[in-house]
Nucleic acid binder design. Structure first.
Lengths: 150, 150
DNA sequence: TCCAATAAGTTTCAAAATGCAACCTATTTG
DNA sequence: CAAATAGGTTGCATTTTGAAACTTATTGGA
């Protein structure tokens, strides 16, 4: 896993893990590429068709995601065709995708508006995800704060 | 809560809650503004100083976040000073911020690199957040898939 | 075997978003 | 009442994004 940004660029806020994550994957296309990779997309063309993204931008984002260790690009020998697969770090974005999805379900749809649903192997919808304290009780933003490291 | 995008613009992928969320708050500055709002920032100047963002961009992002029902802008009577506070929908982004933070802690720092820490009222670090299936066992991306609505 | 289609890009150019710096104009504060 | 502060706006340069056409290697089929 790569823990650096492109040469010449700098972290927006080097000490903050939220900011570093946003620098690495926090733009609309990268997050949607990761979403589709989790749902089975593996090739340039698949991503292009699912997302309706401009080809040059897709090229750029795939390259950066590979650079940052989120995707792995494997070229089938002597072929132009290759596949992109999530690395372990990429798979680990799952929690964030679920959080984004559930927020959207709660706040970005009118009550009667239909939307896609994330289900498990048995077709059951996922329970809501919420941060818990060490006592196991739900923890809110007000009940927590950021401690800066010296 | 608003559930629409600015006039003239359209959702990137209307049926997907992940995509809608990304359209609403999935750009670097919006997420960092929400992060800082959760950590106590309330005024234009505070956001500006903490983020080092250009003033015109900050103006634009605050306006959009208010429009989208993430922030609430309250003007103290006959004063230029006002405060921005998270709405309930804004508070609810907490789960996503925690997910982004924990991913960053796991994958965007070298083992010896220091970073800020999110702690509860007692100063204890938060447990890791992971999606669970209905049986209570951790659920991975491979064990789930998106079901489109007809 | 040859021809068309497919995959995965690259290039070019226009349009939109971002960023910096200077400016503005009410309110406070000393 | 003068200076500092808060919360912007404006103008302009740079960067990023996007649409569309072009490229180049494989492949699959007649």
């Amino acid at each position: 896993m790569d823990v650096t940004l492109a040469t010449g660029s700098a972290w927006t806020d080097p000490a903050c893990p939220v900011a570093r994550t946003v620098d690495l994957i926090g733009d609309r296309w990268s997050l949607l590429i990761i979403r589709d990779a989790m749902d089975g997309a593996t090739t340039f063309t698949e991503f292009h068709q699912r997302l309706g993204i401009a080809r040059n931008i897709l090229t750029d984002r795939l390259r950066k995601l590979v650079e940052h260790g989120i995707l792995d690009k494997s070229a089938a020998t002597n072929s132009r065709r290759h596949t992109y697969r999530l690395t372990e770090a990429g798979q680990d974005v799952f929690t964030t995708i679920v959080a984004l999805r559930q927020w959207g379900e709660r706040h970005a749809f009118a009550p009667d508006e239909p939307h896609s649903i994330l289900v498990d192997d048995q077709g059951r919808e996922l329970p809501e995800l919420h941060p818990l304290g060490q006592d196991g009780a739900p923890l809110s933003a007000e009940a927590s704060h950021v401690r800066k490291t010296a």
